[in-house]
């Protein structure tokens, strides 16, 4: 049934992941019984959505390599669609948006054939140059620069950056590192999402000094630093299981993921604030849209990828 040969350590990590979900669900059930006066609807919805996301993710990772790649491509598609639906777009650009969507299958196809050289320049160079050319042929000049800019920003963050997750997956196993791409993806996605949650929890418990009040009034220094610390410790603990990183480099990876994850998060917050929406969508009950969930990954995926690529491949 399982087409990819999965390393034992990856399987055990997945078991651990489900363990966390079970504990989270139990805590909420316990809170509901004992502290009844508060409403736990959003928290319950959130954890429910986590169950769904983790299950879909696990299946996508374990079934086969191509299913995993299509899964990441689909995430990019959903995110780009959400982005195009909330930003102002020009009527004249309907067809341009279609071309932009077309970049997704091509980008993920490049991952599947492991053509690294083109994968790394396809969107930043070719799509970047092609879309404005196509826009000029249509000829609408009003708000031209704004349209070209927003389009390319969306493609870079939601397709190009996110496709680094997929490229992690196709990285080959090394002699002394058997978990392979699946291990790396699991490590990155788990730490990034864990970092989000732990920054939130630390912020709720100790939060006092606002870190970036103009963009995200609920984010505090205590939450940020607590998250960085917890994520980095976890990175060191998990790196031996899921990555080829040494102790020192595991600390560096933890810092990269926790600090830049925060940056990705607040950047999507800034975009939503600019547009004037609270959630980017309602695909994930309790979380908002898909952009609200992958915001941190748009930063951590390319940065972690190049970190590990430079060190080990």
């Amino acid at each position: 049934m399982i087409a990819i040969s999965v390393d034992d350590k990856v399987l055990w990590s997945l078991v651990g992941l489900y363990g966390i979900l079970i504990i989270a669900s139990l805590i909420i059930a316990f809170l509901k019984k004992t502290v009844a006066e508060k409403s736990y609807t959003e928290l319950t919805q959130r954890v429910k959505s986590w169950w769904v996301m983790v299950t879909v993710f696990t299946l996508a990772m374990l079934l086969s390599r191509n299913i995993s790649l299509m899964f990441f491509g689909f995430i990019s598609f959903l995110a780009l669609k959400e982005y195009f639906s909330i930003i102002p777009t020009r009527r004249a650009d309907r067809r341009i948006l279609f071309w932009a969507y077309l970049a997704i299958p091509i980008q993920y196809y490049l991952v599947s054939i492991e053509w690294y050289g083109l994968f790394i320049i396809f969107i930043p160079v070719y799509v970047f140059l092609f879309l404005p050319m196509r826009m000029v042929i249509i000829g609408e000049t009003k708000n031209f620069l704004h349209a070209a800019g927003t389009l390319h920003w969306g493609l870079m963050t939601l397709v190009f950056s996110m496709s680094h997750l997929a490229y992690l997956l196709v990285l080959p196993p090394l002699d002394n590192f058997k978990a392979g791409g699946v291990g790396l993806v699991l490590f990155l996605v788990f730490l990034t999402q864990f970092n989000d949650v732990s920054q939130y929890v630390w912020g709720k418990m100790l939060g006092k000094y606002k870190i970036i009040p103009k963009v995200s009034p609920n984010k505090t220094w205590e939450g940020f630093l607590g998250g960085v610390l917890t994520t980095t410790i976890l990175s060191v603990l998990l790196a031996g299981l899921l990555t080829p990183l040494s102790f020192k480099m595991a600390i560096a990876a933890g810092l990269i993921i926790s600090i830049t994850g925060f940056i990705g998060d607040v950047i999507i917050s800034a975009v939503k604030r600019d547009i004037g929406v609270k959630d980017s969508g309602n695909l994930l009950p309790g979380h908002g849209g898909i952009l609200d969930r992958i915001d941190s990954l748009t930063y951590t995926a390319p940065l972690f990828f190049h970190f590990i690529y430079y060190l080990h491949y």
């Binding site: 669609k81 195009f84 309907r94 067809r95 969507y101």
Partner: peptide, 18 residues
């Protein structure tokens, strides 16, 4: 809302939007 963006009158090309 949004369907007129995805497939307006006189167009044959469907462009995805939520």
């Amino acid at each position: 809302h949004g369907l007129g963006k995805s497939l307006p009158k006189g167009e044959a090309l469907l462009v995805p939007f939520f």
